[in-house]
Design a protein around this nucleic acid. Sequence first.
DNA 1: TATAGATATGCTAATTTCTGCACAAATTCA
DNA 2: TGAATTTGTGCAGAAATTAGCATATCTATA
Lengths: 128, 128
Amino acid sequence: MPYRAVVSAELAKLFGILSHPMRIRIIEELKKEDLTVGALKDILGITHSAVSQQLAVLRSHHLVVEMRQGRNVFYHLRKPDLAHWIMEGVGFISPDPSEVEKMMSAIESAKSAWGDEKPQAKRKKRGA
Amino acid sequence: MPYRAVVSAELAKLFGILSHPMRIRIIEELKKEDLTVGALKDILGITHSAVSQQLAVLRSHHLVVEMRQGRNVFYHLRKPDLAHWIMEGVGFISPDPSEVEKMMSAIESAKSAWGDEKPQAKRKKRGA
DNA sequence: TATAGATATGCTAATTTCTGCACAAATTCA
DNA sequence: TGAATTTGTGCAGAAATTAGCATATCTATA
């Protein structure tokens, strides 16, 4: 009953939802554009059933929303901020010392990829 | 090896670490002040062993740091921002419709508690 | 020796995830 | 009209994983 328990339980649930690499990947892709199950399947290289089920998990907590269009179902982030917030979490990860180097560059790439549509130039929105 | 897989795997791991209410509670308490295992045990109402083990999980990803003082071991957040970032996650939770009301006020309380050191004396906000 | 905490062990229980399959909805075309 | 196709959902069941807890033991400080 204490609000702390309530809120921390809800947060824990949210974190549980996000504790799967594929679901993170999905959110990452969905940040760039709305996608169908089929498209995600190709991008992620897993079965369409698996994609659908991961989407069901995300949907169950209203992190994504479905929009039917003809025989396609496009998914998009209910709150695009989610992707941004997740990426901020990178500041708290601590990879193996042995892979710190690799991770650092991976993080750099990921940051620019999540921040912009394209990792390369094309957009010069980011100063400094 | 694609950086996306690397980063999303690391993030998933981080989220996994945070997907337990008690660990969130611990972080919440640690945000306010450094605490010993014994103190946390009293606050959370669980055994000292359980506290210690949850701390071990948090420690394993360097989310908390231990500082020995005499025979006490004080824990504190390695990056205090963590608590702030976690609380922002509240924007993405979606409680049961039946408990939305309750949740909303709980969230309000939690926000002020996490935002400030002091939850403010005895608020009387609960109406219907 | 007593206190504070960490760690090892063992058990249990629960959860998650995947594969394959069947089903449903929208579409296409004969 | 209606059969076949595309697209996606959901279930069932197996399997792995794993997470959490309590007890008990071990270390370090005092």
